[in-house]
Design a protein around this nucleic acid. Structure first.
Length: 280
DNA sequence: AATTGGTTCAACCGCCCGAAA
DNA sequence: TTTTCGGGCGGTTGAACCAAT
């Protein structure tokens, strides 16, 4: 490791900064020329050894910066643009299971980077929590997601697809595939048992496999059948929570939010309290 | 047309871990 | 066993963009 990194590890950040300045390390947005140099080099020599990449290319960037630029932008498999409904649902599901393990979540979303998923969570999901004046990790918000938003997402997906099974590409994670189990309602996670990466004989992250998505009606049914209590909650919320659902539609659609006042915090919490009692 | 405020996302920072020496 | 190195990760920042005024 170079001197500045050793210094960093020894708790001398000031020294690192000074040495970086001496080395004229570039920061900030990448230019097209830099992108071209990095892209060509990695194409020829492969990924890894990022500090060496930075040295050999003559780019006045840190190895970390090169790695990040490649992984989040230049890599051919990177897909940008709107997060689909299925992807949104997967993100919610996997976040229930793993929390802020963005890179792990990203392994199940082909072409999406951990950075993009993290940004999505912060800009979209956390915004909703903020508008409800609750913490994104609070039980209230998680319940809202689980019992209102996710079923609504499934409905939207169902509405946008036909009744036959749909397949989407997914990148096989480098470790054992997600086990699709349902946890108890009192647990902290819920995982859609119908959205499962299939097992691959290869560990390569680049290997493409098919993610089988069962008919959405089955998914909805299964979601509602997590147990009777939860089912009751879902049914009641869906029956009474039309305003919440409409607001959710807007969020899911990624478009106009809350402008009609459909997302009514008091309604939301009164509904939750009806169902969950005072501990909500 | 100019300004302002909000949103998005690329990039950086600091911490951590595992492999190699 | 300890130290060094390379790289992965989650959190944070700030520039660019956009819509409203």
């Amino acid at each position: 490791m170079d001197v500045k990194m050793r210094g960093f590890r020894c708790g001398e950040p000031q020294k690192i900064k000074e040495e970086e300045e001496e080395m004229d390390v570039r920061k900030g947005p990448w230019t097209a020329e830099e992108d071209s140099v990095l892209f060509n080099y990695v194409n020829c020599h492969g990924e890894g050894r990022w500090n060496a990449v930075a040295r050999c290319t003559g780019l006045k960037r840190t190895g970390k910066s090169c790695r990040l630029r490649w992984l989040n932008y230049l890599r051919p498999s990177v897909r940008r643009g709107n997060i689909t409904l299925q992807e949104q649902l997967l993100i919610l599901e996997l976040h229930f299971r793993w929390g802020n393990r963005w890179s792990k979540i990203a392994q199940y979303l082909p072409g999406r980077t951990d950075n993009e998923i993290k940004n999505y969570w912060r800009t979209r999901v956390q915004k909703q929590a903020k508008q409800l004046n609750c913490d994104v990790n609070s039980k209230q918000f998680r319940d809202a997601m689980r019992y209102v938003w996710m079923p609504r997402l499934l409905e939207r997906i169902q509405a946008s697809t036909d009744s036959t099974a749909t397949t989407v590409d997914v990148i096989q994670p480098s470790h054992p595939p997600l086990e699709l189990t349902q946890s108890s309602p009192s647990g902290s996670s819920w995982v859609n048992p119908h959205v499962a990466p299939t097992t691959s004989s290869s560990d390569s992250i680049s290997d493409q496999v098919q993610l089988q998505v069962s008919p959405i009606s089955d998914v909805v049914e299964n979601f509602n059948m997590v147990d009777t209590t939860e089912e009751d909650r879902v049914v009641m919320l869906m029956e009474h929570g039309c305003d919440v659902g409409e607001a959710m539609n807007e969020w899911i659609g990624g478009e106009e939010l809350l402008e009609n006042g459909l997302w009514n915090e008091e309604d939301m919490w009164s509904l939750l309290q009806q169902q969950f009692g005072d501990d909500v």
